[in-house]
Deep mutational scan, measured.
Amino acid sequence: MWEAGIQHIELEKGSKGLGFSILDYQDPIDPASTVIIIRSLVPGGIAEKDGRLLPGDRLMFVNDVNLENSSLEEAVEALKGAPSGTVRIGVAKPLP
């Protein structure tokens, strides 16, 4: 389960991407759907250096692409398709 509020994070995407990987996970509230979760951070990558994204965070959007009900493929496309420079990411943090 995740917090209702969405944290807005801006990262600078370079030639090596944003520095994290994702996975799809069965939604605990709606078993028929999936949620997109941050799986891991690349050591020394943009996301790890920034410090705000953590494994277990739920990915909600990338720039103007809503990922609340997306497939893993759609989420990967949104991340890979984001141009270099500032990328806006929304995440919901896990409940304590």
Rank of each mutant, 00 (worst) to 15 (best):
L41E: 01
L54E: 15
I37S: 13
V65P: 00
A92K: 14
G81H: 13
A4T: 13
V65M: 07
D50S: 14
D57S: 15
G14A: 06
F20T: 00
D57V: 06
A92E: 13
A82G: 04
Q26T: 14
T34N: 12
D24V: 03
L67V: 09
P31S: 13
G90Y: 02
M60E: 03
M60D: 02
K13P: 09
G19N: 01
T86V: 13
S40I: 02
N66Y: 05
P94M: 15
G85Q: 04
G5N: 14
K93Y: 03
Y25M: 14
R39P: 03
G85V: 02
L67E: 00
R39M: 03
D64A: 14
S40D: 08
G51K: 07
E77N: 09
E48Y: 07
R39Y: 04
V91M: 07
S71F: 07
K16Y: 05
L79D: 00
G5M: 15
V65L: 11
E73V: 06
K80Q: 07
A4E: 06
E12G: 04
L23D: 13
L79Q: 02
L11R: 01
I29P: 13
G14R: 09
L11Y: 06
E12T: 13
L18V: 09
E10T: 08
W2P: 02
M60G: 01
K49F: 06
S40C: 15
R58H: 03
K16C: 07
E3P: 03
P96F: 03
S40Q: 14
I36V: 13
G56R: 05
V87T: 13
K16V: 08
L41G: 00
G51S: 08
I89P: 00
E74K: 03
L41M: 14
G17W: 02
D50N: 14
G90H: 02
D24Y: 02
V76N: 12
I38V: 14
E68P: 02
A92P: 01
R39T: 06
I38R: 00
A4V: 13
I6A: 05
K49V: 11
V42L: 10
S40V: 03
D64Q: 12
L67P: 01
P31I: 08
P94L: 06
M60F: 08
P31T: 09
E12D: 09
L67S: 01
E68S: 14
L72R: 13
S15A: 05
R39V: 03
P43G: 06
V91F: 07
I46Y: 09
A78C: 09
V62W: 02
P28L: 10
P31G: 11
V87N: 06
L11N: 00
I36S: 03
D30V: 10
G44W: 03
K93R: 09
Q26E: 13
M1Y: 12
V42N: 11
F20G: 00
R39K: 14
V87H: 02
A75W: 02
L18P: 03
A75I: 01
S84F: 11
Q7D: 11
G45K: 02
F20Y: 00
D27S: 11
G19C: 02
G90E: 02
G5A: 07
K93D: 02
Q7E: 15
V91T: 13
D24S: 05
K16P: 07
G85I: 02
L72Y: 11
N69R: 09
L53K: 01
L95Q: 12
T86S: 12
G44N: 11
A82V: 10
I38T: 03
I36W: 02
Y25F: 07
V42W: 10
R58E: 02
P43Y: 04
L67C: 14
R39E: 07
S40F: 08
I29L: 06
L54I: 12
R39H: 14
